[in-house]
Each structure stands twice: as C-alpha cells, then as structure tokens.
Amino acid sequence: MATEPTGEKDGASQVGTPAEVRPTEAQPTAGHAGQEDRSSRRKAALRRAKRRRVVVPLLTAAVIIGVWQAVVAFGIVPNFLLPSPVQVVYALVADASLLAMHSVATLTEAALGLVIGTAVGFVVAVLMDRFETVSLALDPIVTVSQTIPTVAIAPLLVLWFGYGLAPKVVLVVISTFFPITVSLVSGFRSVDPDLIDLMRTMNATRWQIFWKVKLPAALDQFFSGLRISATYAIVGAVIAEWLGGFSGLGVYMTRVRKSFAYDRMFAVIILISVLSLALMGLVDWLQRIAMPWKRAERKEGR
C-alpha cells in the first residue's frame, strides 16, 4: 500500500523525462537517423497492412469452412442435404479426371465465346464511336439485349443450333460482348478532347488518332469490362450446357443433381468459381502486360 504512490510518481517521472530530453537529444540526429527510422517504421507498417490484407480474408474463409464442418458434424443440418467440406474435397479428388475432362469442354466454349464476344464488342464499340447514327441505332438494342435473361434464350439456342458447341459459344458471345462494348464506348468518350486537338495539329489521320490516343485511353475501362465478361463467359457456358449437351461442367452438374450427389454438386460449384477466378487472374495479368505504364503511375501516386 505504501509503495503504490511512489510507484505512480516513478511512472509519472518516467513519462516526463524522455519528453523533456527528446528535443535536445533528437536535434543532432534528426538529419539522418530520425528520417531513416521513420521511413523504416513506415515500411514496416506497410508490410503489416499488406499481411493483413492476406491474412484476414484467409481467416474468414477458414472460419466459414470450420462453421460449415461443425454444422454438418453436429447434425444441425442433415448430411444428406448438406455435405461437409471434407466430403466435398473427397468428391473433388474422386472425380478429378472426370471433372478435368468436363472443365476442358467448358473452358473451350467459354474461351471461344469470350474471344468472339470481345471481338464483336470491340467492333460494335468502334462503330458506335465512329458513327453517331450507329450509336443512336444500336444503343437501345444493346441495352435491351441485356434485359433478356440468359436462361430464357438458352433453350431456344439449343433448338436452333443443336446440342454441340455452337449454342454454347453463341450464348457466351451474347453474354460477354455487352460489358466490352459499354466499357469501350465510355472509354473512347473519356478521351481528353485537347489530346485530339493536339493530334490534329500534327496532321494525324483519324486512324492514327484512334490507335495512338483513343484506344490507349480506353484500355483501363476495357479491362474492367473484360474482367466482368470473363466471369460471364464461364457462367454462360455452364448454363448452356445445363440445357443440353454431351460434355462440360453444366452437363456434369445435371447428372449429379439427378443422382442427388450433393457432395459432387458442391465440388463442381467450387470448381466453377475457381475457374472464374483463374480467368479473372488471367485478365489482370494481360492488363499488366498491356499497360506497363500503370505500374509507374501507381508508384508515383503513393
């Protein structure tokens, strides 16, 4: 009891002294050591922030999987309705070669459709940008085409094009060209008109203005559109396969659903989202390759 007040006093004086000493102490070193110290501290803080950005989502995923496993293990949801994560992993492994085969089919349709859809979207965007009449004519059609639910036209496509590759690719094209067109058109419009004036003072042709100024200016938005289209491509292909076909993850899905194999159902769902993520990653990589100046800009921005 008697020591407590002195302890407090000690604490107070400990807080007091460094603060009093600091200015005289810091001044001679402020030039170098102080700055280095501060920058290394800031770097450490940055590293910690980066680590948090990885760790927190991973933890969240781990918690969700843990809860899921517990819910099934304790019988809160009956196992025949909800497979446990462990069962899903088993299903993934057991059907690995079958899933790989179907994945190849789905990826082929998605990639083919995405490439054609991007090309179509690009051409439409360029025409809409170049000719105001085309823009006026196509604007409503392009928009309306997006209000038609994909699931509703898929059966028609099967009727028209059969059970082969064609209806799947067509559906993917229909669902992927729109984000490309919209992002490109708005990218073209985002160009600084002074840049176009500058190009004109240098006698640039319309073609040169397009390649040197408009297209690069639209790249950022184009890649955002392509990212969305990439996910639409996989989903579009799967939906088309659902409604008829011989191979692909959608076909696999209908088969396992009919046999009530929920573990495999979950396995294929997870596989589909992994494929979509991979495709988005591919787009991000392409963007980094296509726009090397972005890295310099980001560095300067910090």
Binding site: D192, D194, L195, D197, L198, P216
Partner: peptide, 13 residues
C-alpha cells in the same frame, strides 16, 4: 504551325 496547348498533354502510355 507548331502549337503547344495549355496542358502538356503527354500520352501516359
């Protein structure tokens, strides 16, 4: 004629 507009207008890419 050579015309330098008010902004530097360098192409970022």
């Amino acid at each position: 004629v050579s015309y330098m507009l008010q902004k530097d207008l360098l192409l970022p890419n």
